[in-house]
Simulated assay, not measured.
Amino acid sequence: MEVLLLKHASQMVDGALEHGRALECHPLTVAVLDPGGHLLALKREDDSGILRPDIATAKAWGALGMGAGGRDLARRAATAPAFFEALSAISGGRIAPVPGGVLVRDAAGHIIGAVGISGDHPDKDEACAVHAIESAGFTADCG
């Protein structure tokens, strides 16, 4: 199993922000977590809102905690809102089941981390995360 290192996380953050500029996104915040949910890297662009680091981290943390990308979690939350309300309570509000939380998988398919992005429409956040993960040589899993 590969390990997600700081150099990979830094590359992902920078790649996501660069892609965000190419897509003309609103200012983004990008968080990269290791498989245990610990923060490896975080960058907040100028003028990105004060809640964006918490939201980006919650998107990534929720994906890791449930083993599914934010897009899948959003679909599941729509069909099982009581379950996701319970998850929110259990996790102390650390889960954001929306697109923009993307699992990082190694070549063998193991989950080795997650990227969470907040700042623009969730679809654009997710596109930046996918681009960042794949440009770093890993597989992105949105769910």
Rank of each mutant, 00 (worst) to 15 (best):
A74V: 05
G70Q: 11
D46W: 02
L23D: 06
G49A: 10
F83S: 14
A80D: 14
A56C: 10
L4S: 03
E85W: 06
P122N: 10
L5V: 06
T57L: 15
M1D: 07
I50P: 15
M1T: 09
A80C: 13
L39C: 12
I50L: 10
I111W: 04
L40W: 03
L87M: 14
H26E: 13
D141W: 08
F83E: 14
H8A: 02
G65H: 02
G62E: 12
S91C: 11
H26G: 08
G36T: 00
G62P: 14
G109K: 00
A63C: 10
T139N: 07
A41C: 07
C128N: 03
V115W: 14
V32N: 06
K124Y: 11
L39Q: 12
R21Q: 04
H19E: 15
E126T: 12
P35H: 01
A63K: 07
I95D: 11
L4P: 01
G37L: 03
A96Q: 15
A58C: 11
A77D: 05
D141Y: 05
A107D: 13
K124C: 05
K7H: 03
L64F: 02
L28P: 06
V130F: 06
A96M: 15
L39K: 11
A74T: 07
G69E: 05
E45K: 01
V130T: 14
G62M: 11
G67W: 01
A56P: 08
H19Q: 14
T29E: 02
A129I: 12
G20H: 02
E2Y: 07
G69I: 04
A132D: 05
L28A: 02
G143R: 00
A140Y: 07
I55F: 12
V3P: 01
G119E: 03
L4V: 12
T139K: 03
H38Y: 10
L33F: 08
A127D: 00
A132Q: 09
G119W: 01
G15F: 11
A129P: 09
A82K: 11
G93A: 03
D125G: 03
M1Q: 03
D47S: 11
D14F: 04
L17K: 10
L17R: 07
A16C: 13
A22V: 09
R76W: 01
A78W: 02
C25I: 04
F138E: 00
G93F: 06
M12I: 08
G49H: 15
A82T: 14
S10G: 08
F83W: 11
A31C: 06
L51K: 02
A31E: 10
R52F: 10
R75T: 12
A96G: 07
L33E: 04
G143V: 02
G109L: 01
A74K: 12
A60I: 09
